[in-house]
Amino acid sequence: MYEQTFSRTNQGCIVFLLDRSDSMKHQWQSSGTTMAQGAARAVNKILLDLCVKSAKEVGGTARHYFDIGVFGYGIRPGAGGEGVESALGGALAANPIVGIPKLFTNPLAIVAEPSIDAVATSRVPVWVEPVHGYRTPMCQAIAVAGEHVFDWASRHMGSFPPIIINITDGMVTDSPYDGADLTEWASRLTSIETDDGPALLFNIFLSPTGAAEVMFPTSANGLPDPGPELFGISSPLPKTMVANARGSHVRVDDGARGFVFNAGPGTLVKFLEIGTRVADLRGR
């Protein structure tokens, strides 16, 4: 299980569930941004990383290594009101799951962003905008995304199974939804499988407070609500990801789950990098 790498023959499927509820408007620790802005920036950063990984030749488009979905839940800027819709805008909005080549050529905008050394700026693409409003229909998000993940898996049985990463700041407000609670919806989602194993569900809990971060825990001990519930629905990290994490000098104990509590900006990006990488870490 979990031995496939991403290739054009065996594409990967990476789906983000992005909390766009009203509470995401709060400041994110001491980052100077709201949680909505921070989460959108992190998702954009990972989408850019996936595009960069898929860029191979001079003048070429991206290779089709990945299919991507970003489902926003909470406010729906497109349809209005509360619910679930694709958070990818513009030309991508019509497709719940899009291939990297299409993502590559259809960012919403190219914006200037300070580089790490804060001296120069880079021009980087943006696909997801930070918005927030309404409550937190997380179960509905899994129901909607699950349909597309299920369909994708049925067409990619030879692939690494879908990776679903949920980014939220709080309590689910629609459990039970359609007769099933959050745990049941998560169980349904992770029962989707390819020949290489069951789908993976990882959870990222953001907090406005600067409490201690807990990344890749092996138990829910000491986690305040909704930590234990989110830990409970998070998949164990496959061996390849454990190796990748350790290769990036992140401590991961055996039995760790794909869950992070009180993630700050740096941790969020690190978590996403580890959780979306399955190929051998070669450092090159």
Binding site: L48, C51, V52, A55, V58, G59, F104, I110, R123, R284
Partner: peptide, 22 residues
């Protein structure tokens, strides 16, 4: 290196990652 890159992503890849081989 190309004088003009086909996209911002390609330019980032060239500048930040470059190439690598054993």
């Amino acid at each position: 290196a190309p004088d003009v890159f086909a996209s911002v992503i390609e330019e980032l890849k060239f500048r930040d990652e470059g190439s690598f081989a054993t």
